[in-house]
């Protein structure tokens, strides 16, 4: 391989200006150089920390209570801890017994909408983005009867089905930390489900992904969420059919 050219600094910079990928890395022998190797390790360390970080649910709940001026319900999935959560997605999709009872006691629907905040695979995403996103988005929901806001620990997307159904909500929105990428430890996702109830499949939801500083902005995300909610209520469905209609949203001015 000695005949291979080593990208010079100018070529490396040119390549790097065109893509976020790790192009133009130099070589020592055929191996990566120290600085590049440590840069990768730093990114991986941040992603790992994000996966294993525990959501500070009490603080988040009180902050969201102050922000919305309404009640916040704190729940926990049937996954007792992170290792269980990672290996048993089925447990992360349903509530533990205590939470199920608490939710049943508080249910007083019908509501138009249930908003559920879950740590998912990045508590960091939730802690960074939930408050500013809700600040941007909730004012757009005039005229929507919202169920009490829910914060759920060790939760996966489908846990919103049980919560939304118990609360008697016509629509659920689950705001959840996404699986951290190497350069995106704090990406937040939003899943919208019409008529939430256990057994819904991912094909019956719509998703807005990559909400973070370097990705989809709070105002973009809020606008898309409101569009999906209005369309879902009008057409009484979510999923593939709405995704096709959302092409007009994506090509719209931004």
């Amino acid at each position: 391989m000695s005949e291979l050219s080593i990208p010079g600094p100018s070529l490396a910079a040119r390549l790097r200006s065109l893509t976020p990928a790790r192009v133009g890395l130099g070589r020592t022998g055929v191996s990566q150089q120290t600085a590049d190797q440590l840069d990768f390790q730093r990114a991986h360390a941040q992603a790992r920390d994000a996966v294993h970080a525990r959501l500070d649910a009490p603080s988040l709940a009180s902050a969201l209570g102050a922000l919305t001026g309404g009640p916040v319900l704190r729940l926990h999935s049937a996954a007792v801890d992170r290792p269980t959560y990672l290996q048993r997605p089925d447990l992360g999709r349903r509530l533990d017994e205590t939470s199920r009872a608490a939710l049943a006691a508080s249910a007083s629907g019908p509501f138009d909408l249930s908003v559920i905040v879950a740590d998912g695979l990045s508590a960091l995403a939730v802690e960074r983005h939930i408050s500013p996103l809700l600040q941007e988005w909730l004012p757009q929901l005039d005229g929507w009867l919202r169920a009490p806001l829910v914060v759920v620990e060790q939760g996966r997307v489908a846990i919103g089905d049980e919560i939304g159904a118990t609360l008697g909500a016509a629509l659920s929105v689950v705001l959840i930390g996404e699986r951290p990428g190497l350069s995106s430890p704090d990406s937040l996702g939003a899943y919208i489900t019409w008529d939430p109830r256990p057994g819904r499949t991912d094909a019956e939801r719509n998703c807005i992904s990559n909400i973070r500083a370097e990705g989809l902005s709070y105002s973009q995300a809020a606008r898309q969420l409101t569009w999906y909610l209005n369309e879902a209520r009008r057409r009484r469905l979510t999923g593939i059919a709405l995704k096709d209609a959302s092409a007009q949203l994506e090509t719209g001015s931004e």
Binding site: M1, L4, T19, P20, A21, R22, V23, L25, R27, V30, S31, Q32, D36, F40, A43, H44, R179, P180, G181, L182, S183, S184
Partner: peptide
């Protein structure tokens, strides 16, 4: 590139890794 797939968000093997093992 650098074992970091920036679209699929996972880590694979790099061009350098292929050179190493060859």
């Amino acid at each position: 590139p650098g074992a970091d797939d920036v679209m699929l968000n996972y880590q694979s093997t790099s061009f350098h890794d292929a050179l190493y093992v060859r």
